[in-house]
Amino acid sequence: MRRLIANGFVLVIATLCFGCTSYSSQPTINEPVEPATQEIISSFSYAIHSPWKDSRFGKDAYAATLKIIPDAQDTGSSLAALTLLPLEIKISEFSSGGACGQDYLTGLSLGLIPSWCTRTNLFKFDFILNKDQHFCRQKTYSINSMSFSHLTMIPFALFNTDNQPLTLYQAALKDFLRIGQCATR
């Protein structure tokens, strides 16, 4: 009976401390008004730097990359990658560092005291485009998160099950691959 009460108490506290998290990118990802033509990519290299050995985000982002540019081959791990590839993708995934200090206050008050916390640079997406063996353009997207914790956030936390960082990665890659002029270094 004690175990049932203890499990129920833990469930109530966990439910009361739920929050809502929103993500933003720097620079802002432009959503196209009309379908834009996309750069033709024949091969790419993909690298992820993560504190976790088998990052689920890294695997999902790789699968999303293959869907966005289905005709391209990943040649980043082969010896043929000594030449400049048309597209180089580098993803950095950083640890969030745990709960913010103010989140503990919300937990101790059983969700009555609201808190919010901003975590900067949780993800970085670095894209480099090369054309005709020359540098064309480069863009780095930095993803930040802002989380809100309060008793009233329970419905938002329960129904917010999207993988927003993955959605932002897909939008950033599509934004970068729109045809544009090449820049000079």
Rank of each mutant, 00 (worst) to 15 (best):
L112V: 01
S109I: 10
F123M: 09
L173S: 01
F44P: 03
F127L: 06
Y62P: 01
P32E: 04
K174Y: 04
A157F: 15
V12F: 02
S22W: 00
A36G: 15
Y23K: 06
F156G: 04
H150A: 11
T167I: 15
I113K: 09
H49P: 14
I5M: 05
N163T: 09
M1Q: 14
T152N: 14
E31S: 10
A157V: 14
Y46M: 05
T75V: 00
S42I: 08
F125H: 09
I113A: 10
I5S: 03
V33Y: 01
L87A: 07
D126Y: 12
S145P: 05
L16C: 07
F94M: 03
L110Y: 06
S115E: 01
C182T: 07
I91K: 00
T37R: 05
T161Q: 13
C20E: 13
L177T: 03
L166F: 04
A72R: 03
V10S: 02
G58T: 04
K90D: 12
P51A: 14
F156W: 14
F123K: 03
I128Q: 12
N144Y: 10
I113G: 08
T118M: 07
V10T: 02
L4G: 12
K90C: 01
T118C: 03
K139P: 03
L177S: 08
L108M: 04
L112H: 01
D60S: 08
L85E: 01
L79H: 14
T140V: 12
S96H: 10
P51E: 12
N163S: 02
T15W: 02
S109T: 13
S147G: 10
E34M: 06
W52T: 15
R185Q: 10
